[in-house]
Design a binder for these strands. Structure first.
Lengths: 239, 239
DNA sequence: CGCCGAGTTGACTGAAGTCAAGTGTAGTGG
DNA sequence: CCACTACACTTGACTTCAGTCAACTCGGCG
C-alpha cells in the first residue's frame, strides 16, 4: 500500500505545523506526539482506507488531496469530504471507518496509531481542543455543501465548484486581481461525484459556461475565469 | 422571544442528563455548569437564532425538536441539521451564527452564555471531550445526509428520513423494543426542506409508501411503521 | 359560516439522467 | 513508425423523475 516513506522530518519544519491538529501544542505535548508519529505515502488513485476497515491509525494530510466517498450498494457514489493539507483523517474512539478514503493526488500522511493518540487526547488539552475546532469547521463546510446538493441546479453546482476552486487558488497568489487561471485538480468523474451529477451533465454544463464566456479552456483541465464576479452570479448565492 | 420559563430544575433529574454535552461531567464540573445555566422556552415556529445573529449563548435541547436551515437569495431553503433532545446548539469561539435555527415544536433549551461556557471548556476536560464526540457524530450524520441529498431518489429520501426518525426516537425511549409508532415532529414543508424536494413530491411519495404498506397513517402526523426492515430496504442502503 | 393553512392529487413541463456514438490524447507493443 | 488499446471527455437523441401550476379536501378557528 505505502510507497517509499520519506526521510523522517521533525515537526519544527513541517509544512502543516501551524494548521494541523498539532498546531496548538506546547513543546511537551509535541514531544508526546512526535514519539508516536510516523509517515506514510500514497500514489494518486490509491485507496487509503476502504469503508469498514479497522481504524488502526489516524493522522494529518501533510501534502496532496484526498477524498472521502460513500457508495450505495448499487454503485451510486457521493463524495462527502475533500481533505487538503492539514486536514485530519479518522476519528478517535471509533473502531472502523465508514467511508472510502482515496488519494486524489500523491499524498503524504503524518500518522498516529489510534490508541496512543486517544491517550494523548485524554492527557493533554490542546490536541482535543484543536480537533474540536477543526471538526466544527468541517461540519460547517458539510452543511454548506448540503445546500449545494439539495437545492442548486446543475449549472449552479458547477459554477459553485469552479468559483470555490478559483477563489482558493486566487488566495494563494494574491498578486493577480480579476482574471484567474488554474488547473483543475480533479477529473470530470470526481467533479460529478462531488456535485451529485453524472459526468455527461458536468460536461454539458462546462461547455455551456464556456459558450457563455464565463470560463475558457482549450486543454480540458486548464481553466481561465475572465470575471470571477460574473461566475459568482451563476452560483445562485448572489442577490 | 421566550415563553414562560419553567421552574428551575436540578441537573440530577434532567431528562438529557446522560446524553447531552454534560453527560461525562464529574460532580464538580457539573457544579460549574449549573452555576451558569439558565432555561429558555420557545413555541413551535419561533426562530431561536436568525442567520448572522450574534451568538450570545450556546446550549442543549432539553425537549422538543429544532432545525438548522440555510436559504438562497431567491428563497430556496435547505435544512442542514435536525436537533433532538440532548443535541447542542451553537459553537464555541464563533461570534455569529451562520444559519437559521427554528423551533419545529415547542422547545426548551438549557443555555449557557457563550463566554463562560468557553471558559468551562478550557478548564475542565469532560465537556470538551463530550462536545468533540457529539460534533463528530453530527459530522458523520451530515455526511450520511450528503449521500441522501446527492444520490438518492425521492422515494429513497422519504424512506431514509422516516427510518432515521423512527430509529432516533426509539433510542430516546429505551423501554420500548422496536418503536414502530411515532408522531412526525415536522410538517411536510419541513420534510421537503430537509430532503431537497417539493412538498408535492413529499406528499406523493408518502402516499405511495402508504399504498405499498410500508407505512400507515390516518392522522397525517402519526406514523406507524409495521416493518422497520422493509422500510430500510426502500432507503437504497440495503444490498 | 367562511377563511386559512396543511396536505393531497392531477395534468403538464422540463431539467437531468440514460444510452450510444463519437473525438482527442497518451501509452504500448509489434 | 504505426497500429492498437485505453481512457477522459464531448455531444446527440431520447427518457424519466421530480418540479410547476392548479384544483381540491380536510380540519381548526374566529
Amino acid at each position: 500500500m505505502s510507497l517509499a516513506v520519506p526521510t523522517l522530518r521533525s515537526c519544527a519544519d513541517c509544512p502543516i505545523r501551524y494548521n494541523a491538529v498539532c498546531s496548538r501544542c506546547e513543546p511537551d505535548e509535541l514531544d508526546q506526539l512526535e514519539e508516536i508519529k510516523y509517515y506514510r505515502s500514497y500514489a494518486a488513485g490509491q485507496t487509503i482506507f476502504f469503508n469498514g476497515d479497522p481504524l488502526e491509525f489516524v493522522g494529518s494530510i501533510v501534502s496532496g488531496v484526498s477524498s472521502l466517498t460513500r457508495t450505495l450498494p448499487d454503485g451510486r457514489v457521493q463524495m462527502v469530504g475533500l481533505l487538503l493539507p492539514g486536514d485530519f483523517i479518522g476519528r478517535p474512539h471509533r473502531e472502523t471507518i465508514d467511508c472510502d478514503v482515496i488519494a486524489e493526488t500523491d499524498v503524504m500522511l503524518c500518522c498516529f496509531r489510534r490508541k496512543p493518540f486517544e491517550a494523548v487526547i485524554e492527557n493533554t488539552p490542546h490536541v482535543g481542543q484543536r480537533l474540536l475546532e477543526m471538526t466544527l469547521d468541517e461540519l460547517d463546510a458539510a452543511r454548506e455543501w448540503m445546500l449545494v446538493l439539495g437545492r442548486k441546479t446543475a449549472r449552479e453546482k458547477i459554477a459553485s465548484l469552479l468559483h470555490m476552486i478559483a477563489t482558493r487558488m486566487a488566495s494563494l497568489k494574491p498578486g493577480e486581481t480579476a482574471a484567474t487561471t488554474f488547473t483543475l485538480p480533479i477529473t470530470r468523474e470526481t467533479m460529478a461525484n462531488y456535485l451529485g451529477l453524472t459526468i455527461e451533465t458536468v460536461s454539458r454544463q462546462m461547455s455551456a459556461l464556456k459558450k457563455d464566456g464565463l470560463i475558457a479552456f482549450d486543454e480540458r483541465r486548464d481553466i481561465r475565469v475572465p470575471d470571477l464576479e460574473a461566475l459568482k452570479a451563476e452560483t445562485g448565492e448572489d442577490a
